[in-house]
Lab assay of single mutants.
Amino acid sequence: RIRTTFTSAQLKELERVFAETHYPDIYTREELALKIDLTEARVQVWFQNRRAKFRK
């Protein structure tokens, strides 16, 4: 699998949801994935990585 490059619009939306909750449920992730045209798996991994970055 190649590395996913996020558009600024996708990042803006991901960060907006992250500001609300660091642990979005499956429904939130799936809805977000559809909205920004990514797979739910990519959204899930983005949140994992974002939480790791947040803890640092």
Rank of each mutant, 00 (worst) to 15 (best):
T5I: 06
Q10V: 02
T7H: 03
E20G: 06
L11T: 12
D25L: 01
L14G: 04
L14R: 04
Y27K: 15
R51G: 05
K35F: 07
E31V: 11
R50L: 02
R51L: 06
K53V: 13
L14A: 03
E20N: 10
A33P: 00
K56H: 08
R1C: 13
K53S: 14
K35S: 07
Q10C: 02
F54G: 09
A19P: 02
F6D: 03
T7A: 03
R1D: 15
P24Y: 01
A41M: 06
F54S: 11
E15L: 03
T4I: 11
E20S: 10
T7V: 04
V17L: 11
A41H: 08
D37E: 11
Q48Y: 07
E31N: 02
F6E: 10
T28L: 12
Q10Y: 00
D25S: 10
L32T: 05
Q10G: 00
Q44H: 14
H22P: 13
R55F: 11
V43N: 05
T39H: 04
N49E: 15
T21G: 07
Q44L: 09
F18S: 05
L11F: 00
Y23W: 12
E15C: 06
I36W: 09
E20L: 11
A41T: 11
K35W: 02
F18H: 01
R1G: 10
I36T: 14
K56V: 08
R55M: 13
R42W: 12
F47G: 00
L14Y: 00
V45N: 14
Q48P: 01
L34P: 01
K12W: 06
T5P: 12
R42V: 15
R55N: 14
E13L: 06
E40P: 12
L34F: 12
E20C: 07
V43L: 05
R55V: 06
R1A: 13
K53H: 09
K53T: 12
L34V: 11
R1W: 07
D37Q: 09
H22C: 07
T39P: 11
R1K: 09
L32H: 05
I2H: 11
A19D: 12
I36N: 08
K35Q: 09
K53R: 13
A33L: 03
R50S: 03
T28K: 14
E15N: 08
R50E: 14
L32C: 02
E30L: 13
I2W: 08
W46A: 02
P24A: 02
F6S: 05
K35R: 11
W46K: 00
H22G: 03
D25F: 01
F54A: 14
L34W: 09
Q44M: 08
A19K: 10
T5H: 07
P24E: 01
N49M: 09
T21R: 05
E31S: 13
T28Y: 04
T21C: 09
F6L: 14
I36K: 03
L11G: 04
E20Y: 10
R42S: 15
W46N: 06
R29G: 01
F18A: 00
T5W: 09
T7N: 09
A19Y: 03
A33N: 00
F54M: 14
V43C: 00
V17N: 05
E20I: 10
T21H: 06
Q48I: 06
P24S: 03
W46L: 01
F54Q: 13
L14K: 03
E31D: 13
A19L: 10
I2K: 12
T28E: 09
A9F: 10
P24H: 04
V45Q: 11
R29M: 13
D37C: 12
K53D: 14
D37K: 12
I2S: 13
L14E: 03
R51V: 05
Q48N: 12
R3F: 12
E15R: 02
A52L: 13
F18I: 01
T28W: 05
E20Q: 13
V17Y: 00
T39Q: 07
K53G: 09
I2D: 15
R3N: 09
K35L: 06
T21P: 03
T5N: 13
A19H: 11
R50F: 00
F47T: 02
E31G: 07
T21V: 06
T28S: 07
D37I: 02
I2A: 13
E31L: 09
R42N: 15
A33R: 06
R3M: 13
Q10I: 05
A19R: 09
H22M: 11
Y23I: 01
L11C: 06
R42Q: 15
T5L: 09
K56R: 09
R51A: 05
E31A: 15
L14F: 02
L11I: 12
K12L: 10
L11P: 06
Q10T: 03
A52M: 11
R51I: 02
V43P: 03
F47M: 01
E15M: 04
L14I: 01
L34I: 10
R50D: 00
D25K: 00
S8V: 11
K56A: 11
A9Y: 06
F47H: 00
L32S: 03
K35A: 10
E40W: 04
K56L: 10
Y23Q: 03
R55I: 10
A33Q: 00
R55Y: 15
N49C: 08
N49Y: 09
E31H: 09
K53F: 00
T5F: 08
E40T: 06
L14P: 00
Q10E: 05
V45K: 13
Q44C: 11
A9G: 09
E15A: 02
Y27R: 15
V43F: 00
A9I: 10
E13Y: 01
T39Y: 02
A52E: 13
T7Q: 02
S8T: 07
Q48S: 11
V17W: 00
L32M: 05
Q44D: 14
A52Q: 09
I36D: 02
Q48E: 13
I36P: 04
E40G: 05
F47K: 06
T39C: 08
F54H: 15
I26E: 13
E13P: 00
F47Y: 06
D37N: 15
R55C: 12
D25I: 01
D25A: 06
Q44T: 11
V45L: 12
R51P: 00
D37F: 00
E20K: 13
D25M: 01
F18P: 01
F47I: 00
Q10N: 03
E31W: 10
R42A: 15
I2N: 14
A19G: 11
I2Y: 12
R42E: 15
F18D: 00
L11Y: 03
A41R: 10
A52W: 07
K56W: 09
P24T: 00
E31P: 04
R29Q: 04
Q48W: 06
L34C: 09
F6Q: 02
E15G: 01
R51C: 01
H22D: 07
L11D: 10
V45Y: 08
T5A: 10
A52Y: 02
F6M: 13
T7S: 11
E13D: 00
Y27C: 13
L34K: 15
L32D: 02
K35P: 03
E40M: 06
L38R: 05
V17C: 08
E31Y: 09
F18R: 06
V45D: 14
F54L: 14
F6G: 03
I36Q: 05
T39E: 11
R42T: 15
R51S: 04
F6A: 03
D25V: 02
K56M: 12
R50A: 11
F6W: 08
A9V: 11
E30P: 06
L38S: 15
D37V: 06
R50Q: 15
P24N: 04
V17E: 00
K12I: 11
E20A: 07
T21E: 08
F6C: 08
R50N: 00
T28F: 05
R1Y: 03
K12M: 10
E13F: 02
R29H: 00
N49H: 10
E13Q: 06
F54I: 10
V45E: 14
T21M: 04
